[in-house]
Amino acid sequence: MSLDQSVLLEQSLALADMVADSSVAIAYRESKYHLEQDEEAQKLIARFAKMKEQYEEVQRFGKYHPDFHTVSTQVRTLKRELDFHENIAQFKKAEKELENLLMECSKIIAYSVSEQIKVPTGNPFFDESSCSGGCGSGGSCGCA
């Protein structure tokens, strides 16, 4: 390993420490802890996981399954309950903010080398910077 590589690795570790010590990462860890300690939220998550298995089974047959409408409605209702639970919503928000921070760091590093480097940043359909042209949307995504 050359001197440049060892310096780069040291600086990468320093960046990782800065991200881990950031207010965004601290908020994520705190919200995760609160979520893990919330018995009601854990029960909701377990119910949703079980219901999701039933939903996947029903989806194999689609609308021809006798429980299709019942299970589909129950999954949507339970998902809504999850989305509005305070600790679950807080965790999802903190998780998204940490993900955004990590994506921004990745972009800065990649684009400092070259604007042509593709950075995996999640869903390319909604990621305005991921399209490099020829997507077929007529330019509505912002590509050139």
Results as ranks from 00 to 15, higher is better:
67 D>N: 12
104 E>W: 02
134 G>F: 02
14 A>T: 14
112 S>K: 09
95 E>K: 10
137 S>I: 00
20 A>I: 03
74 Q>Y: 00
48 F>N: 08
21 D>T: 06
39 E>M: 08
127 D>A: 09
27 A>G: 04
17 D>L: 04
125 F>I: 11
44 L>F: 09
123 N>S: 11
57 E>G: 05
12 S>M: 13
10 E>G: 11
4 D>F: 13
95 E>L: 02
83 D>G: 06
33 Y>G: 03
95 E>I: 00
130 S>W: 04
36 E>Q: 13
2 S>L: 06
98 L>E: 07
32 K>V: 04
111 Y>G: 06
75 V>W: 10
2 S>C: 08
64 Y>Q: 08
19 V>K: 08
99 E>M: 05
28 Y>R: 12
133 G>V: 02
20 A>T: 09
4 D>W: 12
136 G>T: 05
57 E>K: 09
67 D>C: 04
116 Q>L: 08
43 K>I: 12
22 S>F: 03
75 V>C: 07
111 Y>H: 15
19 V>P: 04
51 M>G: 06
3 L>Q: 15
1 M>S: 14
56 E>M: 08
46 A>T: 13
96 K>Q: 12
119 V>M: 04
24 V>R: 12
115 E>N: 13
70 T>R: 14
144 A>E: 09
64 Y>E: 11
124 P>G: 00
87 N>E: 07
73 T>Y: 03
62 G>N: 01
93 K>C: 06
144 A>N: 10
127 D>P: 05
104 E>L: 09
120 P>T: 04
78 L>F: 03
91 F>Y: 15
47 R>G: 07
39 E>H: 10
4 D>A: 15
16 A>H: 05
57 E>D: 08
117 I>V: 12
97 E>W: 11
2 S>W: 05
136 G>L: 03
1 M>G: 15
51 M>I: 08
58 V>H: 00
64 Y>F: 00
66 P>A: 01
91 F>T: 07
67 D>Q: 13
139 G>S: 09
23 S>A: 15
58 V>I: 01
87 N>G: 03
116 Q>S: 13
77 T>E: 15
4 D>N: 15
138 G>R: 12
102 L>R: 13
47 R>K: 14
11 Q>E: 14
16 A>C: 06
110 A>L: 01
118 K>L: 03
44 L>Y: 10
85 H>S: 06
141 C>V: 01
38 D>W: 02
122 G>P: 01
127 D>W: 05
95 E>D: 11
100 N>W: 02
49 A>N: 09
85 H>Y: 05
21 D>L: 05
28 Y>P: 06
67 D>S: 11
78 L>D: 01
74 Q>A: 10
46 A>W: 04
94 A>G: 08
5 Q>H: 12
28 Y>H: 15
24 V>T: 15
31 S>D: 11
116 Q>W: 02
78 L>G: 02
96 K>I: 03
8 L>Q: 07
44 L>V: 07
54 Q>A: 08
6 S>K: 15
125 F>Q: 14
34 H>I: 03
109 I>C: 10
66 P>L: 00
116 Q>H: 09
37 Q>E: 10
101 L>S: 05
33 Y>W: 05
127 D>S: 08
56 E>Q: 11
88 I>N: 07
6 S>I: 13
45 I>R: 13
57 E>S: 07
9 L>G: 01
101 L>N: 06
61 F>H: 07
129 S>H: 08
61 F>P: 01
11 Q>Y: 09
35 L>K: 14
55 Y>S: 11
52 K>D: 04
142 G>D: 05
5 Q>I: 11
73 T>V: 01
109 I>A: 15
114 S>F: 00
44 L>C: 06
